Simulated assay, not measured.
Amino acid sequence: MDVDAYLARIGAQRPAAPTAAALAELHERHATSVPFENLSVHRYEPIVLAEDALVDKIVRQRRGGFCYELNGAFAALLRELGFTVSLLAARVYRGEGRFGSPFDHLALRVDLEEPWLADVGFGRFARRPLRMTACEAQPDAEGEFLVLDAPDGDLDVRYNGEPVYRLERRPRLLADFGPTCWWQATSPDSHFTQQLLCTLPTPGGRVTLAGDKLIEHVDGKRVERVLAGREIVDAYREYFGIDVNEAPSPGVFPAAGPRPFPN
């Protein structure tokens, strides 16, 4: 991996040592530089869960991705910098006391003097890592987070009092997430096939492009406007640093079930 190129992509300096402070800086730089986006799903681009492919997409292509891509690449960067990293599977909260399927989400455990939860791939989430052994609220620029013990030895992560996901403690391999990643990117029942989304934190809040709607949260105020044609292309470049030749449009996914990616 070209570590210097990856660090330049997120505007970070190479840390002198793998410390908690260094992890926090890298995490925040990544979370505020690399957008959470699902353009590949709607442009029918294969999503390859291999570290070199993920890093190439983020660094050379200057794209973003969803959890498997963003946290998969970030884990590779951290390991190159001397951190001890494990991939963890999580089930996203779906409401009414229900959680999604295993491998619904990929998050990271980083072991230093104590274990830290790192997650740059959930969309709106903590900008800095969370202590995994703390029972008290952990303030962050995005809000207040809690990491609590859950049934069967799992951990529950809460954001502003609401459940976010249930996290396993067992380390996984990147390949373990392949089948669910494929389902998320191809099934008409997946949240990612139902909406075209690109979002990134900003110093004053957050900017999101949902289809043709540009939504800006600045100092607690929401401003929304509908874009068209070249305005959408320009918005991807201006707000997210993503170059597209034409305005992406949501894909059409067959109701019969998940489809294969084209060869």
Score class of each variant (00 low, 15 high):
Arg230His: 07
Pro151Phe: 12
Asp219Cys: 10
Ala21Ile: 07
Phe253Lys: 12
Thr193Ser: 10
Val48Ala: 13
His105Lys: 03
Gly95Met: 14
Gly82Asn: 11
Phe253Gly: 06
Gly251Met: 15
Asp234Ala: 14
Ala16Gly: 13
Glu142Met: 15
Val147Trp: 15
Glu96Pro: 00
Ala137Ile: 11
Asp156Arg: 12
Asp243Cys: 15
Thr202Ile: 05
Glu136Ala: 09
Gly251Ala: 14
Thr199Ala: 07
Asp219Pro: 04
Ala5Glu: 01
Arg225Lys: 08
Ile215Phe: 02
Ala126Gly: 01
Ala21Arg: 06
Asp56Cys: 14
Val252Pro: 00
Gly178Tyr: 15
Phe74Arg: 05
Ala22Gln: 10
Val59Ala: 01
Tyr159Pro: 03
Ala228Cys: 04
Arg158Tyr: 09
Glu142His: 15
Leu88Gly: 01
Thr84Pro: 06
Arg169Glu: 11
Pro203Thr: 11
Ser249Ala: 15
Glu162Met: 03
Arg14Cys: 02
His191Pro: 07
Leu88Ser: 03
Ala107Asn: 09
Ala150Gln: 04
Leu88Ala: 03
Ala185Arg: 12
His30Trp: 06
Glu216Trp: 13
Leu106Glu: 07
Lys213Ser: 06
Ala228Ser: 09
Leu26His: 01
His217Pro: 06
Glu224Pro: 01
Leu174His: 05
Glu51Thr: 08
Val110Met: 06
Arg29Asn: 05
Leu70Gly: 01
Leu209Val: 05
Glu114Gly: 04
Thr208His: 11
Asn263Glu: 08
Val244Asp: 02
Ser187Lys: 13
Cys67Asn: 10
Ser190Cys: 08
Leu174Ala: 04
Ala235His: 01
Pro171Ala: 08
Trp183Asn: 04
Leu130Glu: 00
Gln194Ile: 10
Ala20Phe: 03
Asp149Arg: 02
Val164Trp: 11
Phe192Gly: 03
Gln184Val: 05
Ala137Pro: 07
Ala235Cys: 00
Lys221Tyr: 08
Phe74Ile: 06
Pro15Met: 11
Tyr93Ser: 00
Ala73Cys: 00
Trp183Pro: 00
Glu45Trp: 15
His30Pro: 00
Phe240Arg: 04
Ala16Val: 14
Ala21Pro: 04
Pro102Gly: 10
Gly82Trp: 11
Cys181Ser: 05
Gly205Gln: 10
Thr208Ser: 14
Ala107Met: 15
Asp219Thr: 12
Asn38Ala: 12
Pro248Arg: 12
Pro250Arg: 05
Asn245Tyr: 15
Arg206Val: 04
Leu23Val: 01
Arg131Phe: 00
Leu130Pro: 00
Glu113His: 14
Asn263Gln: 13
Lys221Gln: 04
Gly211Met: 03
Asp176Val: 02
Ala20Ile: 05
Thr202Cys: 08
Gln61Lys: 06
Leu148Val: 10
Ala256Thr: 12
Ile10Met: 13
Val59Tyr: 01
Thr199His: 04
Arg230Val: 11
Val3Arg: 08
Tyr6Ser: 04
Cys67Thr: 07
Gln184Trp: 04
Arg169Asp: 07
Asp154Pro: 01
Asn38Phe: 15
Phe36Gln: 13
Pro46Lys: 07
Gly100Leu: 12
Met1Val: 12
Leu23Gln: 00
